[in-house]
């Protein structure tokens, strides 16, 4: 049943396959990569075009681009994962408190959310990075603390509608404490939409990481990060285009994969979505 409906959703299938492949690539990076992404530098092989020993060519320092792209998946995925875990925990907790406690808490949290939403994430992240300094850990913090507003809003809206349902009234009358109503009763019911947002958010975070690394604020060289690779290939776009093309494709495909997976999950979790059965000859 479940499997059948997963196959019926093309987005889910396609996006899921991409994401699984990227994850496998990240896990098996040392096995897949023909060279070490950092230490196999040989200035004799500097800026070799794709082909032969180096399938994707080499960069200015003579490192294999293919190996660096493969290892770059680790950075991108960990950015997606870590930031979304942080965002989800913050967003869901704040949303639950705002929606369930109401009054003062609601005003406070929604005010904060609106402020977060009115400042572009990249500007916010830049400000944090400026204060903390560049680096991967700081990037996690910057992106993980700034992008929870949507999760919070969706959670709050869901809590407001679930709060009125009889099962919550029943829980109250059975003596459940406030915390257990929020976390054991209501929360499981909002994880579906939150998962969708987290998946779509991963794609956004991967793009942001690339952008911040491009600006020189993300993972520091020689760490192989897709955004960082693009950044250092900036001046060589016409001389050695493969330096930009391959990390660019990697970002594009991964982000596309996460976005399609997110859309697919949304369709799958939507109770109104129609089953797979087809009727022949509708009159």
């Amino acid at each position: 049943m479940m499997l059948k409906s997963i196959f019926a959703h093309k987005n889910l299938m396609f996006g899921g396959t991409i994401v699984v492949l990227v994850v496998l690539m990240a896990i098996a990076a040392p096995l897949l990569a023909p060279f070490d992404p950092v230490f196999d530098a040989d200035l004799m092989n500097s800026e070799m075009p794709p082909g032969g020993e180096f399938l994707f060519g080499t960069d200015t320092n003579g490192r294999d681009v293919l190996s660096r792209v493969i290892h770059g998946a680790r950075i991108s995925l960990s950015v997606g994962l870590v930031t979304q875990i942080l965002n989800t925990i913050i967003g869901v907790s704040l949303g639950l408190v705002a929606g369930y406690m109401g009054r003062f808490w609601d005003d406070l949290i929604m005010g904060l959310t609106n402020i977060m939403l009115s400042i572009p994430v990249i500007v916010f992240a830049l400000a944090i990075m400026a204060a903390l300094g560049p680096g991967l850990i700081n990037l996690f913090i910057a992106l993980g603390l700034t992008n929870w507003a949507y999760t919070c809003r969706i959670t709050r809206a869901q809590v407001l509608s679930d709060k009125k349902k009889d099962y919550v009234k029943a829980a109250k009358s059975l003596g459940y404490s406030r915390a257990s109503i929020m976390f054991t009763q209501i929360m499981p019911n909002i994880l579906g939409p939150v998962l969708v947002i987290a998946t779509l958010g991963s794609a956004e975070a991967i793009l942001l990481e690339a952008a911040l690394s491009f600006l020189g604020l993300g993972a520091q060289p020689p760490t192989p990060s897709w955004g960082g690779m693009l950044s250092s290939a900036r001046d060589l776009l016409f001389v050695a285009p493969w330096l930009s093309i391959f990390p660019g494709i990697a970002i594009f495909v991964t982000v596309l994969g996460f976005n399609m997976l997110g859309d697919g999950l949304r369709d799958l979790l939507d109770p109104k979505s129609v089953g797979a059965t087809k009727l022949g000859g509708v009159r």
Binding site: K165, S173, G175
Partner: peptide, 24 residues
């Protein structure tokens, strides 16, 4: 005391669909 009291008075609701937690 609240728990003790809660156990004494219970409710049965109208809508059999919204009165049960779908995730339990």
């Amino acid at each position: 005391e609240q728990l003790q009291l809660r156990s004494q008075i219970q409710i049965v609701f109208q809508d059999p669909f919204s009165s049960l937690n779908p995730r339990m």
